[in-house]
Amino acid sequence: MRKRKQRFNRLLRATPAVLYLACATNLAAVRVQDPPARPAAPAVTREVTDETGRKVRVPAVVRRIVSLAPSLTETVYALGAQERLVGVTDYCDYPAEARSKAKVGGAVTPSIEHIVALKPDLVLAQAHGMNRRETVEALERLDIPVFTTSARTVEELLGSVERLADVMGAAERGAVLLADLRARLAGLARRLEGRTPRKVFFVVWYEPLISVGPQTFLADALRRAGAQSVVETSQDWPQVNLEELLRLQPEFLVFASSHTEGVARTVESLREQRGWRALEAIQKKRIAGISDAVNRPGPRLLDAIEQLARQLHPEAFPGVAP
């Protein structure tokens, strides 16, 4: 009983200060109805349509960029605009300097306050990645322009890079980068011409067994690398039955990993398991690894595709170690 009274007394003493605040917030509530004054709008803006169909008003000269996805961060660096990059997500770790930029949180729920505090004049988001529609809408409500890319194929990715270069005012660098990327893709296509694509199964995760659907970015990357995912489904991340996998008997199993030892260890443990050992690909050690970059639709993707192609079609790359 006495303890309760003590607690109440303490709270009671805080009341006067709190009452002032109560009046203040009441006044504040009244004021909020007036539209807040913004710093004078930048002199020149232009309207562009982003890749999800939204109309965005971007400044003619973009000075402060916030990126909400690691792949977009990589693109910014590839286009040479890193000086203007003021904010990145917690997961933006490539290139290494990106880690030293100011952080705005995760890609799924970045801190709106942090983004606003950085005073960006352009925010980049991804439609098929971790970013949510709610984040984009929240930023737009605060009059911060958000350009959302949407790339489901390698070709679309190139288109995104081009458009991003244009929006960020790095068109020249963009043209150079694109020319290079296109050349590499063309070269790869030539090498693989006439060769039957290998039947592969891309292992996103093995417990439960999850692969990729044909409409994902990954599936397109596989195609470019001279592979064909054996999984036919309309889902993007289908869970596959091990029996089904045994029936499909792919020629290669493909894992995404940043460490080849990690892949080797995983495969060793799978080899012991029932079912998995009946897979030809396991028995004949037809395992291909592809760098994590394939999960980030950015310029490094080409490296990953070439790396995979070398493993799947070594004959097409005479003189080059896989």
Binding site: F8, L11, L12, A14, T15, V18, L19, L21, A22, T25, S111, E113, H114, V116, A117
Partner: peptide, 20 residues
């Protein structure tokens, strides 16, 4: 009244903290 006061206090603290 006491609880209301506590609420206002918590709201004030919440207003104070954030990105900036």
């Amino acid at each position: 009244g006491t609880l209301g006061g506590a609420l206002l206090l918590v709201m004030a603290i919440s207003l104070k903290f954030g990105a900036t």
